[in-house]
Write a protein that binds this DNA or RNA. Structure first.
Lengths: 335, 335
DNA sequence: TCGATTCGTGAAACCGCTATCTCGGATTCT
DNA sequence: AGAATCCGAGATAGCGGTTTCACGAATCGA
């Protein structure tokens, strides 16, 4: 097999410096203890040849790639981007790079994808895996070290980090309740999605605890367009407040409502979830629950780093969303 | 050196199947032409051992990693995220993964970072490099194959893709001019940034071509907060229209203006740049220039794929932003 | 002064896989 | 039937590093 790249190898440097590859390796890794003059010759030769060690070669010999994989359902989603941003920057501090894999929202592809990319990295962060529990549990076993984000329902054999959407949406509901609303409508996300399920669960719990509240449900989705489409259905329920699955839906909904001459929050209150940067600039500014996505990435790396050093990774964490009251909620009209 | 991972190797499979590693390799890569019975034994053994080939080993032997590096100034920036999303999804179709590197907006770190990560991948996409031309040009030479995004000023020895902000902002200015505006104010980005420079250049050219136009400039930045901070300065110019460096700034600016009781577009028109998803939901909906960030990523991969196959990469492309007229612009009050 | 350490460096094995070369046995041709 | 060809699969040599082990020279103690 001929040489693939034009780059110089450790043997080239060794030959030029008149030493053995072993010595070059030692010098390059500051493990050299012999004659300073030899070390100098090696560094000089390396410099002249523009040599830098092949990461691949090192990885194979060392059994470590200094890379972690990040598997995510959709890189286009701003929430996941925030997680990635936090993860990538923090990992970089420790000399680790992130390899990304987008499963394109296909739950059935996730296990293979994760397994494949795991082979290219030292560990994997599974972000909001869509696959069912019966596939996730064994996968988590087999792919360690691994950190799971946003699957708080399972007890897994790996560190888990999550946002407590269930509690978050209850806080939102409570906020509306405190304002006097008794008839709410939930603009749901995709029926089967895990994130939607937690919200539904939270609302069910809330309804159970507050028997004087009625919570209708209309089909929505996850995008602004879905919010726009949901507007007529929301109005038809005659609810005094709408809880959208996330900020994107809420903003689309508010937009469509105002186009129909419905005033937010006078005629109807609207809430979101996530507190994306634009929530405060919508009109009216959106009351929502703030979710620390970047911190999720940062904490994920913290867990990962501990795992990679064979240290205890620390406790699992569930971030509690915080209600940000802005202009899109107010007491209901009649009360 | 002891075995690092608990994973089974090609030799394990070979031993179990009673064949040589070479045969296993052939079977795993569909290059096997011999007895079907042998192939079966191999696949069975591989299956029993839960074997999957080490990517590292293959990479080293093959001299190709099936990964490309993506170097970007700030992964937190939605524009770059869009590029990454387009790039990653398209590359995945061809079996390539993306390794990300965030230079944290530090131009001086970029060359080293790019060189380092280049060693881990088959190629690199340099996205909006901040480093000066005298460092970029030799770097591009040494890191090939490589694609550069958003440095249209240089003629580089690599495929280049870019957004023509210079023309984009002129189109915006023209739109305002056509509405009757003659006194504009530009809310600038960071002074030294390349992206700001092109906008300034475009506006200078526009001013030169339209001597009856006055274009003031106030300092801004790149975020919504910067737009908010710029509001009083914008008002002080008494311009009839404000051209913000990007949508984030424009939205912050509009927000601050409306809080001061200034009506957009009645009292002053405001424009942005990028057409982020929320531009259409701001109030009023933002007139802006639409920029195809995802396509930038897609085209980057197309170039890259050609390069990796030693084919001609096709022509460089400069995407022309398209003005999206929405509610934030109107004829000036007095005219 | 001679044997026992210590020290500096090289040789060689190995990480896991692929590709080339080789060779014995089966098949084909004359 | 004997020679020529083919074919299946193994042995082997890397890919570019790291690390263990070994060995000769220098240093030490007696």
């Amino acid at each position: 097999m001929a040489r693939r790249t034009g780059l110089s190898t450790i043997s080239d440097v060794a030959a030029r410096a008149g030493v053995s590859p072993a010595t070059v390796s030692r010098v390059m890794n500051d493990r050299f203890a012999g004659e300073p003059e030899v070390a100098e010759r090696v560094t000089a030769a390396a410099h002249e040849l523009g040599y830098s060690p092949s990461h691949l070669g090192r990885s194979l010999a060392l059994g470590t790639t200094n890379a972690i994989a990040f598997v995510v359902p959709d890189l286009g989603n701003p929430m996941f981007q925030a997680v990635l941003s936090g993860l990538s920057k923090t990992a970089a501090h420790d000399g680790y790079r992130v390899l990304v894999a987008d499963s394109a929202e296909s739950p059935s592809d996730e296990p293979l994808l994760a397994a494949e990319i795991r082979r290219r990295a030292d560990a994997v962060v599974l972000c909001a895996p869509r696959m069912p529990a019966e596939r996730l549990v064994p996968l988590v076993q087999s792919l360690q070290p691994l950190v799971v984000i946003n699957r708080p329902d399972l007890s897994l054999s790996a560190p888990a980090l999550a946002i407590d959407y269930e509690s978050g949406i209850q806080r939102i509901a409570q906020h509306l309740y405190d304002l006097g609303h008794r008839h709410l409508v939930y603009v749901a996300g995709t029926e089967r999605s895990v994130s939607n399920r937690f919200r539904v669960k939270g609302l069910d719990a809330f309804a159970a605890a507050h028997r004087d509240v009625r919570i209708d449900r209309v089909d929505g989705g996850v995008s602004s367009a879905d919010g726009i489409a949901a507007a007529p259905h929301v109005l038809r329920t005659r609810a005094t407040a709408a809880i959208a699955m996330n900020d994107l839906v809420a903003i689309g909904l508010m937009h469509a409502l105002s186009q129909r001459g419905v005033s937010v929050p006078r005629d109807i209150s609207v809430t979101g979830m996530d507190d994306i940067p634009f929530a405060q600039f919508s009109s009216p500014p959106l009351t929502t629950a703030s979710v620390p996505h970047v911190e999720l990435g940062v904490e994920a790396w913290r867990r990962m780093a501990a795992l990679l050093r064979d240290e205890p990774p620390g406790y699992d964490m569930i971030f509690q969303p915080r209600v940000e009251v802005r202009g899109s909620t107010a007491p209901p009209r009649s009360s």
